[in-house]
Design a protein around this nucleic acid. Structure first.
Length: 800
RNA sequence: GCGGGUAUGGCGGAAUUGGCAGACGCGCUAGAUUCAGGUUCUAGUGGGGGCAACUUCGUGGAGGUUCAAGUCCUCUUACCCGCACCA
């Protein structure tokens, strides 16, 4: 029979739709399995060839779990708010909502053409008011619990997108999206207090089944560090608080450095004799972006505060105070104690400004460089700390500081609060109004959703305000609290908002009274397996864990973590091994591949190409091999004969069922396919197989290449769907051979092989091995020093 | 600089976790089928040596542990990813 993938794949996709085959049942008595893939941003380019890789992988997992009897939730939706859509809309004068609708339509067709078993009845769209109603509702809860606040701050502003960016969205000093210059601007922003959750976001990783690199990246991003805050008194009166992780080196602190933005400087203006020079430095520092301050200005600069000095609390010595932009105002206390002998940055600064370098930890050569090794050093020149190790000295010093009221233990995090405002149109409106009398007032929950007004001009304004600010009808409102005139917040939420809780919406997507019913959430959550890209680990993954924890705290969710298991896929690279991009001309369109080879072949290829977690180059040659495999499978029907089992194949079948089953669970899709190919080769070698065996074979292959398997299932006389039939089982005892081939070695080198019955004991195995001709040749006249017997594997003779 | 990762034939990649290196696929070679191209089928395919049975070398590099190392230990090189003056 001819294999016509176009006709065949369409037929089964329609059939699955018509029968609602993959809709998750709200039958809360069945065992559930929730598989989740990151929902795409429906861009104008359409589906990328990389999208199907993770989707196919979790489709395989979902299909197998379904066949194993689980109630599977494998949903899909659209993360549709965002800048590219807005920019496209501005350029082509089409409303973003229309652009989104068109893009979604195309994406959906593309996804359907690949045969994913998504539950389309639960499709969601973050730009749908019935969806973002709950995004806004969560924001209001955060506000009511003191976790959303407004703050004047210097922010990163993209000169091209005309929008404030989160720190995470600035890459190498330029806008992550458009690559334009990023400058610093002072703006009043909504902030979310993710820092309150920093410790829990670290601690709770411990029990989760996340791949290790995801855990370490999150932990590093949160950046916990333990140390102490120490107060240095000053000649200006105010104490200067510094944060340090090396309290043990306090005796070696020979100066202080404050960030240029430090608040005490203005307060001390009268005492500082070179205040003009200081202000000049501050001005220059303010002009620099974070990028310039870090990347481009490695060379240390600074100004000494003349007329003010500090006292080292450990030894009472008077030490100078500097300002320098190598000290960040946003971390710790914005001031440091400088210990040039044991910190490379302080060392560099001290060398440049001719400041004293006092060694307090012996073990290095401080005439050459700072000695920073904490494992081997011993304290010297440090009074009561002398002779102690670094760890002992840290503890002793902090104890002493605490006893004398000079300092205390302190834990700092690199994680900053989440800047939640965007001055753009195509996002969720922030449901807050500003009243001159009452300040910021949340809009009543029953007024949600606060819909995005349908305006004509969504171009960004030149002054950095949101396009919504021009929409006066919408902006001017009444205060929900006092009824007086008030103005709506015109900033919208960042595109990370909608994706921070979408996995909850899938549990019960059509609920008008709650973001999802409690029963649905209790049943489906947490997500059992979530796969996504490594690029989302420090943003989306962290943000959504934060929101889930908050919702857990206020009783909406019953689980403190949203995802039990997190894995990450590798990219599909261009043929030349480089990242696919239009400019490099190495982009592959999935539509073309589906048209030429079929969805089954594309799915198999993307799974077979290599380790799922590693990136792999696209190969137009290799995909032919997968197509050949599909065609060979299809021709199996021609050699079906009889019932029961084919003895030559029995063991191979049991082994294959075992391996494919465990490989899917272990994300080793490539070796599962290899195993199915090996079995196929064996079947053709034998030349026949029974109907039952063919049914087993296509059941195993069904998650990978569902269309062709459904077709063959039908040809074998079944009227039901293979996708909803039972997963094959195997008998472990039948995967083990009756005879075992032993490798015979002399001095660790392969010399011969013999077959022995399984379970042969050591003595008889060695006896049999010694009778082997080649072994006899090699051992003749020599002394056997040692005999090594590894059951079922190897017999090795060490001879002299 | 810190953190994480990778390195195996011409190519993509396997290797039950210390036990036959190169499964499976691509490509290539030869033959068959075909008017021909493609397809399909059969055989072969890590390097060196040998007509051959066989032999020797071989998992980025250098050492080491072991009867046995792609796998463990020490050092080292290259590349990729993340963070980056975080005190």
């Amino acid at each position: 029979m001819k294999y016509d993938h176009r006709q065949l794949e369409k037929k089964w996709q329609d059939r699955w739709d018509a029968e609602h085959a993959f809709e998750a049942k709200n039958d809360y008595t069945k065992p559930k399995y929730y598989t989740l893939v990151e929902f795409p941003y429906p861009s104008g380019q359409g589906l990328h060839i990389g999208h199907p890789r993770p989707y196919t992988a979790l489709d395989i997992v979902s299909r197998k779990k379904r066949m194993q009897g689980y109630n599977v939730l494998f949903p899909m939706g659209w993360d549709a708010f965002g800048l590219p859509t807005e920019n496209y809309a501005i350029k082509h004068k089409i409303h973003p909502a229309t652009v989104t609708k068109n893009n979604v339509k195309r994406f959906k067709e593309q996804l359907k053409s690949i045969g994913f078993s998504f539950d389309w009845s639960r499709e969601i769209n973050t730009t749908d008011p019935s969806y973002y109603k709950w995004t806004q509702w969560i924001f209001l809860q955060l506000y009511k619990h003191g976790l959303a606040y407004k703050k004047e701050m210097t922010v990163n502003f993209c000169t091209s997108c005309k929008v404030v960016l989160a720190n995470e969205e600035v890459v190498n000093g330029v806008c992550e999206r458009c690559g334009s210059e990023v400058v610093r601007k002072v703006k009043s922003q909504w902030m979310l207090k993710i820092t309150d959750y920093a410790q829990r976001l670290i601690d709770d990783l411990a029990d989760l089944d996340f791949i290790e690199r995801v855990k370490t990246q999150e932990i590093n991003w949160i950046g916990r560090s333990e140390g102490a805050e120490i107060v240095f008194s000053s000649t200006a009166g105010d104490g200067i608080q510094v944060f340090t992780t090396r309290a043990d080196t306090l005796f070696g602190a020979t100066y202080l450095v404050m960030s240029p933005e430090h608040k005490l400087i203005e307060k001390w203006a009268d005492c500082i004799s070179n205040i003009d020079e200081v202000r000049e430095y501050q001005k220059n520092a303010a002009k620099k972006s974070d990028f310039e301050r870090t990347e481009l200005a490695k060379d240390k600069t600074g100004v000494k505060l003349e007329g003010v000095s500090a006292i080292n609390p450990a030894n009472g010595k008077t030490i100078p105070i500097y300002i320098s932009d190598y000290v960040l105002s946003t971390y710790g206390t914005g001031a440091i104690m400088a210990v040039p002998a044991h910190d490379t940055r302080d060392y560099e600064f001290a060398k440049k400004f001719g400041l004293p370098i006092i060694e307090v930890v012996a073990g290095g050569d401080i005439s050459e460089e700072a000695f920073t090794d904490v494992a081997t050093g011993t304290l010297i020149n440090s009074g009561f700390l002398n002779g102690k190790s670094v760890e002992e000295a840290k503890k002793a010093m902090i104890d002493w500081l605490e006893e004398n009221g000079l300092g205390n233990r302190k834990i700092n995090y690199k994680l900053r609060d989440w800047i939640f405002s965007r001055q753009r149109y195509w996002g969720e409106p922030v449901p807050m109004v500003y009243c001159e009398k009452c300040g910021w007032v949340p809009i009543p929950e029953e007024e949600l959703p606060l819909e995005l007004p349908n305006i004509e001009a969504y171009e960004p304004t030149d002054n950095g305000e949101s396009p919504l600010s021009k929409c006066e009808d919408w902006v001017n409102t009444v205060c929900p609290k006092c009824g007086g005139p008030a103005k709506r917040e015109t900033d919208t939420m960042p595109n990370w908002a909608g994706s921070s809780w979408y996995f909850l919406s899938y549990c019960d997507p059509h609920n008008a009274d709650a973001l999802a019913s409690k029963e649905a959430l209790d049943y489906w959550m947490p997500v059992d397996w979530y796969n996504g890209g490594m690029e989302h680990v420090t943003l989306h993954l962290l943000y959504s864990r934060f929101w889930a924890k908050f919702l857990y705290d206020i009783g909406v969710l019953s689980c403190p973590e949203p995802y039990l298991k997190r894995t990450a896929h590798g990219m599909i690279l261009g043929e030349n091994g480089e990242k696919m991009s239009k400019s490099k001309g190495n982009v592959i369109n999935p539509d073309d591949i589906v048209a030429e080879f079929g969805a089954d072949t594309l799915r198999l290829y993307e799974m077979f190409v290599g380790d799922f977690e590693k990136s792999a180059p696209w190969s137009p040659q290799s995909i032919r091999g997968c197509r050949r495999f599909v065609e060979r499978v299809f021709s199996l029907t021609d050699i079906v004969s009889g019932e029961g089992i084919t003895p030559e194949l029995e063991q191979d079948f049991h082994r294959t069922v075992k391996k494919v089953t465990s490989d899917i669970d272990g994300m080793k899709f490539n070796t599962a396919i290899a195993q199915l190919m090996t079995l196929l080769n064996k079947i053709f070698e034998v030349g026949r197989l029974t109907k039952n065996e063919l049914e087993t074979y296509i059941s195993l292959l069904c998650p990978f290449a569902p269309h062709i398997c459904e077709e063959m299932w039908e040809q074998l006389g079944h009227s039901n769907l293979l996708s909803l039939s039972a997963w094959p089982s195997y008998d472990d005892s039948l995967t083990i051979s009756e005879t075992v081939e032993y490798v015979l070695q002399i001095n660790g080198k392969l010399k011969s092989k013999i077959k022995l019955p399984a379970g042969t004991d050591e003595a008889s195995a060695i006896e049999a091995a010694l009778k082997d001709e080649k072994i006899a040749d090699f051992t003749e006249g020599k002394q056997i020093v040692k005999k090594i017997f590894v059951p079922g594997k190897i017999i090795n003779f060490v001879v002299r």
